[in-house]
Amino acid sequence: MMEWIKTTIVPHFNFWIYVVIMMLGLWAAIGKNNLIKKLIGLSIFQTAILLLYVSMGVKEGASIPIVDETMGEAAVDFMAQGGGAAGATAFPINPDLFANPLPHVLMLTAIVVGVATLGVALALCQVIFRDFGTLEEPEILNQIQTIQDDV
């Protein structure tokens, strides 16, 4: 048992944490009756995915992927040539030294999307509360069934 934890969970603990958080969120989003609790669950669910991506880009001992003068003469040349392939011959970039920036950038977008979704959802909750006077899903569904609501 311990062995299994050591070989399977510990080296990939970030994935396990993300899975656990994601499942918590999914359970709340689907299983809870209160609409706001559903939204909290949904946000947790989305955040778990952010964690997956961000942990993907992490490398031990790596720094932010910015080349500056402190890296020596070659780095200055590299910058002088405008980076890219031409500069890379002068300054071979060791990928182990830098964290992968792309997942982080992607997650910036995902965070924005998540915030937007939350905003829309909260607005909907507000309208639903105004219309039905409650945020409990069973009560809302009950009202929909009893009250004839013409389209």
Partner: peptide, 24 residues
Amino acid sequence: SRRSRVAAFQYLVIGTVGASFYLI
């Protein structure tokens, strides 16, 4: 219609979960 808001909310929850699965 009042129903449309509830339908939209349900759509939102399921839609977000679906899109998140895609993202994973």
